[in-house]
Design a protein around this nucleic acid. Structure first.
Lengths: 199, 199, 199, 199
DNA sequence: TATGAATGAGTATTCATTCAT
DNA sequence: TATGAATGAATACTCATTCAT
C-alpha cells in the first residue's frame, strides 16, 4: 500500500520521525540502524516500513517536516516585523533560537543531509531555496527603500548571511557547548550585517 | 608494519589520497567502496592498507593533508598582505579560489567530514581552529589599529565570516555550477564585511 | 537481541548445531565457511547470527551441547552400575559407544576444539574436568573398597584411562574404518585396566 | 626451483622450522601468519618460500622433522633396553621426557596437526604408525616370551598405551603447569600397564 | 495495522603468495 | 639467495527490507 498524506498526521508517524531525528543526530545517518529508530520509537522494525518507503525516505521526511515548521515559524515572525532592518534582525535571532530549541533537528539538517549531495541537488534544493529567498526578499525590500546598498547582489548575499548564521549554529550543534548566548551572537551578527549592508 | 611519516611522501600514498578524494567527492564517503578507491588509484585493494589503517583513516588523512596545504597557502598570502583590511580581503578571495581549484577536496572537507561529529569534535577541531584563528587575528589586529569596531567579538565574528565564505563555496561544490565568479563573490563579501566591521 | 537460553531449545538452533557439527567434522573448523553451515542447515547466512554470536560461538555451543548430553548419558549409566569395577567397565563401553553413534560430534570435540588452547584452558577445561572426575571417583571408590591398588594416583590415572579410550575413538573418527568392534575394544581395555588397577 | 633435500640441512631451514614450531605452538596454526614465522626466524616473508612450498608445507615439515627425531631417540633407547618390560618402561618414560623437553614441538604434533584430518589420514598416518608399531612390537615380544597375556590384541593395546601417555603429555602442553613430575607419571603408568598386561 | 524472525546482498579487511629488484 | 612491496582472492558479519502470522 502506498504511503499517503493521511498517515503523516498520525501519532505513530510523528513518533517515528522524532525517534529518527534523535537517533540520526546522535549517531549519524549511516551509523544508525533502522532497528535503532524502531527501538527509540517503541515500534517493531517492520512498522517503520508502513509509514516510510525506506531508510532514505526517513531522512527526507525529517527534512520536509522540519523545513515546513522552520519556514512557517519564520514566515509568521516576518509578518510581525516592521521594515527590512527589523525583519533581518528578527530573522537572525529566530534562526538561532530555533536551532537552540531543536538541536537534533538542526544537526540532521546541517550535517546528515549534506551527505547525499545528489539528494541535496535534486530534492532539498527547492525547499532550501524558499528559505533562502526569505533573506533575499528582505534584502531587495531594503534596497528598494534605500536602506541597503544598491550594489550588493541579494542572490549572493543571502547565502553569505545564511552561512554566517548557520556556522554559528553549527558550533552549538557540534560542540554541545554554549559559550555564547543567542542574544550575544544575534547582536554581533546584526551589528555586522546591518552596518555592512547599510546604504 | 606501522604506517609512518616516511610513507606520506611516497608516490603511492599521494596517488591513493587523490583517488580517495575524487571518489569520496563523487559518491560520498559511505557510498564509496575501498575497491572504488583502489581502482581509481590503479592499485590493488590490499595496497591501500599498506598506507592507511582503514577506510576512516583515508578520510582523516585527506583532511590532514589538505588542511596543511590550505593553511600554508593562506599563511603565505597573509604574509604578503599589508594591513588587516587587505589581509581580510585576500583571505576571502584566496579561500574562494582554493575551493574553485580543488573542488573535490573542498567537498570532502565540507560535507563528508561533518558526518562524523565525534571525529569533528575530537580531532579535526584543532586544525580547523587554527584556520579560524587566522581570521580572528586579522580582526584583533584591525581592532588594535582602530580600523574595526571595538564591540565586535572576534571569536564570534571569525565563525560568521568563515560561514559566509564557506556557504558560497558550498553552492559551487554542490551545484557544480558557477553562476557567479570568484571575483564577483569576493567583491560582494568584502564590501559587506569590511563596511560591517568598520569602526 | 541477546541470544538467550530460550533459543537453545528452538528447532532452528538445533538444526544449525547439527549442521555445524557435520560441516566442521567434514572440513575442519577453519576450513568451513559460515555459509557452508547455513547451506547445510537450510537457513540464510544471517539466520545463524540470530542464534550464535559468531563462528567461534558455534564451536563453543557444540561443545557445551554435546558435553551436556555426554555427561548426562554417562551419569545415568553410572547410576545403574554396581560397584567400581562394573562402573569402570560400563564407562569404557559407553564412551566408545557414544563416539560410534556420534562420530561427527566426537570429531569436533576431539580435534577441532583443541585448536584453541586458550579456549581449552579457560573454558572447556571445567566441563572436561567434570567428565574426567567421573573416572577418578570410580577409582577412589575402588580404592576405598580395597578393589584397586592404593598406590595409584586417581588424578593421574583418570587421564591415562581417558586418553586410552579417546585414542581408540580417535582412530575410528579419523580413519573412518571400523577394524575393531566396540565389543572387542571395550573388552581389551577392560581387561588391561582392571587387571592393572587390581589390588 | 624445487625445494630439495640439500636445503634441509641448511642453517636457514632449521631456523625457520624452529621459528614456525614456536609460533604455531603459541598461536595455533590457523592463527599464525607466515609473516609471524618470518619475523621470529628473522628472515623476510619471501625467504620462507625459498625453503617451503607453502604454509601447509611448513607444518608437514615440522611433523617429518620431529617424528624423525622422536623415532630415532626412541629406537636408540630401545636398543639399550633388556626385555619387553624394560623396553615398555623406557618407552613410556622417554616419550614423557621428550614432551617435557620439546613442549612446542609436542604441542604442534598433538594439537595443530589434528586439524587437518585429511592430512592426518593421507600423510601423517604412515610415520605415526611406525611410531605406534614400536609399542606393538614390544607387546608381541612380551607375548612371545610369555610375559604378557596372550589374549590382548597388540594392534588395539598399542593405541591404548599411546593414548594414555599422550593424554598425560597433553595436560602438560595445554595447562602449562607441571603438577606431576615425569618420574611420578611414568611410575604410575608403568605400574598400571605392566600389571595390566602381565600374563 | 503491527510484528519480528528470516533473508541474503553487500564490503571492509586480511594474509598467503609472488616477483621485480 | 634474499627481500618486502604489491597483489587480489576469500569470507565473516551486518542490516535494510520482507512477509507470514
Amino acid at each position: 500500500m502506498a504511503i499517503n498524506a493521511e498517515k503523516i498526521g498520525s501519532e505513530k508517524y510523528q513518533k517515528i520521525i522524532q525517534a529518527a531525528t534523535k537517533v540520526f543526530a546522535e549517531k549519524g545517518f549511516y551509523n544508525s540502524k533502522v532497528s535503532d529508530v524502531a527501538k527509540e520509537a517503541q515500534v517493531a522494525d517492520g512498522t517503520i516500513y508502513l509509514y516510510f518507503k525506506n531508510k532514505d525516505d526517513l531522512l527526507i521526511s525529517i527534512f520536509e517536516d522540519s523545513m515546513d515548521h522552520f519556514t512557517a515559524s519564520v514566515q509568521e515572525e516576518m509578518s510581525e516585523a516592521h521594515g527590512p532592518v527589523d525583519r533581518l534582525r528578527r530573522f537572525i535571532r529566530l534562526h538561532l533560537e530555533l536551532v537552540r530549541e531543536h538541536p537534533d533537528t538542526a544537526q540532521v539538517l546541517q550535517i546528515e543531509l549534506r551527505q547525499s549531495s545528489k539528494f541535496m541537488k535534486e530534492y532539498a534544493a527547492t525547499k532550501f531555496r524558499d528559505y533562502l529567498d526569505i533573506i533575499s526578499k528582505i534584502l531587495e525590500e531594503g534596497q528598494g527603500l534605500g536602506h541597503f546598498k544598491k550594489d550588493i547582489n541579494p542572490q549572493i548575499v543571502k547565502r553569505a548571511i545564511f552561512g554566517a548564521i548557520d556556522e554559528m549554529a553549527l558550533e552549538w550543534v557540534l560542540m554541545k557547548k554554549k559559550k555564547y548566548s543567542v542574544d550575544e551572537v544575534a547582536q554581533q551578527l546584526c551589528t555586522m550585517f546591518i552596518d555592512g549592508l547599510a546604504a
